[in-house]
Design a protein around this nucleic acid. Structure first.
Length: 601
RNA sequence: UGUCCGAUGGUGUAAUGGUAGCACAGAGCUCUUUGGAGGCUUUAGUCAUGGUUCGAAUCCAUGUCGGACAACCA
């Protein structure tokens, strides 16, 4: 038993199974591809949130389970909305989430490298293979970066010309409103039948910058009256005289998502292009573009799954942006935000977030996942790893009258009952203590097992005490409790086996250290904040309470990496704002059976 | 309205023609120097109607309900 270490004691993780993994497994069984290759392709126009975490875990999970690679790719085809700030945060968040798990599956590219042209059977081909961590270690002279759709702008432009030459694309002069109306009504654009030469000339002049924004577009020539609107001659390129965070002022035309995405997948050699349900109707276009070009390598395929909806939170980038910009939270990494950086700052570990992603599964059904599933994954992880500490959030003073002034005892305390290897520490005990205000009631309700006048309670790791006297100030406020300790009741003592119903936490008043403690709660008060349009009216006014707490002295040495359980209260993590002053964030409360019991009566 | 997709306890998911299972939530018991954790027990489900079949959550038909999309966004 004692030989068990943490790893062997943990149950072997069960490999998840879902309809996408079933497809991949079948492909592996029939050797359809030399290697499974997925990708995670966020647009750098906002911070990653827990919904992205689901996607990251799926894509990296598949690569991890099937011996493949997952590229990180910035889907940066709309410079008007994107920013380098987001590029950087996305990289940090992905690295954190896959850290210690699927780092070896992360596909990157040498900085600045563009797709190479591979000639074969008279066909040109653009290919940009990924480099993984193990290969990077042998190439230390180079630096590596994520993939960017923008680094394929040259190739995507070439493919557009090829489409024009094949008579499968045309330059259209309709205004945005007209285009919209024509497409809605299934009508062909009057510019649909321009000659290849004219189309080529116009497209090249679009690239040169001869036209202003919105004047012309490049459109695919498919079927203006197709039942699927995405096949009604969709836009491929638009004019945007906007600086791009990666390509600067090199381009004034930018490819649309549908055109850039399938080609980016192809260029990177992606086999399984996994996205959310709203792209399901785009799949015929995805396939049409790839099949219309003369592409020599195996084509990628798109698969769709349901995005995550979580109770008591909003997930859309627009709404999260609103919370940040209107200063309803302190920033993207506010611990109340469902962003990956917010969740991380709150104290949740990557292990817990991954466990959550595994537990919720992958389907095509749009449901709302109960937050309790997330909370359970967090508690389960934190219970195993947290160092137990004694801390009093809302103190009341207790004087142990039969302990002499100035006497200090060092008591043994277990760091983590779930993990013997975490060891023990000493905590000081003295005549004056703080206990939690909630742990004393002058007129206790039924089944209240804590301290009450004339009643006894165990001080965790210390003595059984009895409350003799309740001291109040002139206006009747409780100021102090005077108690006597059973000095034989400490661990190993003659009366240590005495049963008392309650055990409470405490800190020695003279030794306690002060800390700012941020008590976070759900950001919204209702399960579906955006159900009726105005999500902001459901903001929880008590989502943050800041208090000064009394901590046991060992917490002076708290680290950012460690997780703490303030016993009987909640899990906490040191906040990044901590400096000379300690600041703890409450990640999540312990389950509180008493709160439930108290509510009954 | 059109196209596409979906429907299994309160919630999320398994069962791929052969015993409807798991997790969360709920209830109860037990244990406990954390009213935590753990252990045990338990409540509760195949959208509807037909059909195929020895046998249907699964296959077929029709219907109902729900969702996504219909940006020079992704």
């Amino acid at each position: 038993m004692s030989l068990e270490n943490k790893d062997s004691a943990a149950p072997a993780p069960i490999a998840p199974s879902d309809f996408i993994r079933d497809i991949v497994a079948a492909h592996v069984a029939e050797n359809k591809y030399p290697r499974i290759h997925t990708r995670f392709p966020p647009e750098p126009n906002g911070y990653l949130h827990i919904g992205h975490a689901k996607s990251i875990c799926l894509n990296f999970g598949i690569a991890h389970e099937f011996g493949g690679i997952c590229n990180l790719r910035m889907d940066d085809t709309n410079p008007a909305k994107e920013d380098i700030e987001y590029v950087e945060s996305i990289q940090a968040d992905v690295n954190w989430l896959i850290g210690g798990w699927a780092e070896d599956q992360l596909g990157l590219k040498p900085k600045g490298l563009a797709p190479e042209v591979i000639a074969g059977e008279g066909k040109r081909d653009f290919y940009l293979p990924a480099v993984t961590k193990s290969e990077i270690e042998n190439r230390q002279a180079e630096t590596f970066e994520p993939f960017y759709a923008s680094s394929y702008f040259d190739q995507i432009y070439d493919y557009a010309e090829e489409l024009i030459e094949k008579g499968k694309a045309f330059v259209c002069d309709l205004t945005p409103d007209q285009t919209d109306e024509y497409r809605r009504n299934g009508l062909e654009s009057p510019f649909r039948n321009r000659t290849v030469e004219e189309n080529l000339d116009l497209f090249q002049r679009m690239k040169k910058g001869e036209f202003t924004d919105g004047i012309r577009t490049l459109r695919a020539k498919i079927d203006a009256s197709a039942p699927n609107i995405w096949l009604r001659d969709p836009l491929l390129y638009r004019i945007k005289h906007v600086e791009h965070h990666q390509t600067g002022s090199q381009w004034c035309i930018y490819p649309m998502y549908d055109f850039a995405h399938c080609l980016s997948d192809y260029i990177e050699g992606i086999t399984h292009s996994i996205c959310t349900l709203e792209f399901e109707v785009h799949r015929p276009l995805y396939d049409w573009i790839l099949e219309s070009l003369n592409l020599p390598r195996t084509l990628p395929h798109q698969y769709e799954f349901a995005r995550l909806s979580l109770g008591y939170t909003v997930m859309s980038k627009r709404k999260l942006m609103q919370l940040v910009e209107e200063k309803l939270v302190t920033g993207w990494d506010d611990p109340r935000m469902p962003t990956i950086c917010g969740i991380r700052r709150r104290g949740v570990t990557a292990v817990a977030l991954r466990a959550f992603a595994y537990n919720i599964g992958i389907t095509k059904y749009n449901g709302i996942t109960d937050v309790s599933v997330l909370e359970h994954a967090i508690r389960e992880d934190l219970n195993k790893r947290s160092l137990r500490r004694l801390a009093v959030l809302r103190p009341i003073k207790v004087v142990i009258t039969n302990v002499p002034e100035g006497k200090v005892e060092e008591l043994d305390a277990v760091n983590n009952p779930e993990d013997e290897t975490a060891g023990k520490r000493k905590i000081p005990f003295s005549r004056e203590l703080f206990i939690e205000r909630d742990d004393f009631q002058e007129v206790p309700p039924p089944k209240f097992f804590r301290l009450k006048p004339g009643g006894e309670v165990r001080l965790k790791y210390a003595y059984i005490i009895k409350c003799d006297e309740v001291i109040k100030d002139a206006s009747g406020n409780l100021t102090e409790l005077r108690c006597t300790a059973d000095l034989d009741s400490k661990t190993g003592g003659a009366t240590s086996a005495r049963k008392v119903k309650g055990t409470i936490h405490w800190v020695s008043a003279t030794h306690a250290v002060d800390a700012e403690v941020r008590l976070y709660d759900r950001l919204f008060t209702v399960p579906e904040p955006d159900a009726d349009g105005d999500f902001k009216q459901h903001l929880n006014p008590h989502s943050l309470e800041v208090i000064t707490a009394k901590l046991e002295p060992s917490l002076k040495d708290a680290t950012f990496e460690a997780r703490y359980q303030f016993e009987r209260l909640a899990y906490f993590a040191l906040d990044k704002d901590s400096g000379s002053k300690l600041i703890f964030n409450r990640t999540i409360t312990l389950k509180d059976a008493w709160a439930k019991e108290a509510q009954k009566s």
